[in-house]
Amino acid sequence: MTRILAVARRRLLHSIPVVAIVVLGVFALLEAAPGDAVDAYLVIGGGDAEMIQRLRQEWGLDRSFLARLGAYLTALAHLDLGWSVAFARPVSAVLFERLPNTLMMMAAAICFSFSAGTLLGIAAGARPGSLRDRILSLVSLGLYAMPSFWLGLMLLVGFAVKLAWFPLGGIESVGMGKTGLARALDIARHLVLPVLSLGLIYLALYLRLMRTGMIEAWRSDYIRTARAKGLTPRRIAFRHAARNALLPVVTMLGLQAGALLSGSVVVESVFAIPGMGRLAFEAVTQRDVPLLLGVFLISTLMVILANLFVDLLYARLDPRVAAEG
């Protein structure tokens, strides 16, 4: 237990410079982008010189880069994420409204792609070269080659427009006033298609990784030993081969947590889900620095936590890692 705590503490300490780099990087990037939040705002309706000057003053955009950075960091040290000019609300309020949607969608997508991907990978890798393996390989390559927005639109046309099995978009039915279990089921129904379009591509990746790991494992000495002991092929596949093949897949899991956020920008747009991905996109187009920083800080935190979890899982799966840790 103390070892796990030590790993966790070390990881969290390492993450402090990461957060600092994210803050400085986002600030500098948006500073380098042409146009500011007032320019972005003026596209609806325009305005005259006096009004534009008043807005820049109100939004603190007339101050120097360093002054704005300093003010932001001071506020951040007090755990204040600042004010979103695009939404005219506190950044934290905007973020926490959207975070649950993204978390739900991502958790479901990761669970789905990880569990289904590894199981199918075991199925494919149990007998390499078999018909089952070939079919699974072909399908997974096809899925992996598909862009997620196209897959999303195709799922939408097929299952929501033509078959009408699932709702078209949104996170829940509008104005039905559902509560409790009925609401949870409603949200789950709305999440099926977006989770599929986010998760299917990673499912293919996990399947391929798992299959390769399995094929390698079959050549190992310990498998021959297990065979010689007279274990059933099923037991060998699950207890011996799969367990070792799982390690690269777990590595991928940590990476997916980060990449999902960028994938969710398009999926959230297609399925009209108010989540963090779309929020990041809106923050950039509105040049809303505090909001974009808020999104990046939260997602950095999410990636750090996901990787911590993966590290701990590693330690559990591979005794060699634990011994070094």
């Binding site: 939408l156 929501a160 427009v161 078209l168 399925f271 009209a272 779309r278």
Partner: peptide
């Protein structure tokens, strides 16, 4: 009785929504 404005940022999804009578 009421008007509901559904926020649909994707043009493809808008076309699908009107086709499905949503």
């Amino acid at each position: 009785d009421a008007i509901v404005y559904r926020v649909l940022p994707d043009p493809g999804a808008v076309a699908a929504a009107i086709e499905a009578n949503e």
